[in-house]
């Protein structure tokens, strides 16, 4: 299982904090977004596919072509605004 977690505006827009996703084999982050668009709603694909959305796997920043493995924690979030 892949553990997908969402933060800030993305969490609020999609109304979901975290989600367990089962996929048949390892896939890229971009393919995971497509998968979520099909299994959840098309809104997931739109929201997570925005240009400024950031992704972290196991709490380290990665690009959307990074491959997600089983048991990975995949976080999607908007640009940060702390400090």
């Amino acid at each position: 299982m892949i553990n997908v977690i969402l933060f800030a505006s993305i969490r609020e827009t999609l109304g979901t904090q975290d989600l367990q996703v089962s996929v048949p084999q390892p896939l890229s982050v971009a393919a995971l977004v497509q998968h979520l668009g099909q299994t959840q709603s098309v809104q997931w694909c739109e929201e997570l596919g925005r240009d400024n959305v950031l992704v972290a796997i196991n709490q380290a920043m990665v690009s959307f072509d990074h491959v997600v493995q089983c048991d990975d924690e995949v976080a999607f979030f908007p640009p940060v605004t702390g400090g």
Binding site: F7, F77, V80, T81, G82, G83
Partner: peptide
Amino acid sequence: IDFLKTRATFWKK
């Protein structure tokens, strides 16, 4: 502080 503002995972509402 410069990089905390662009890389630390905080969000303000």
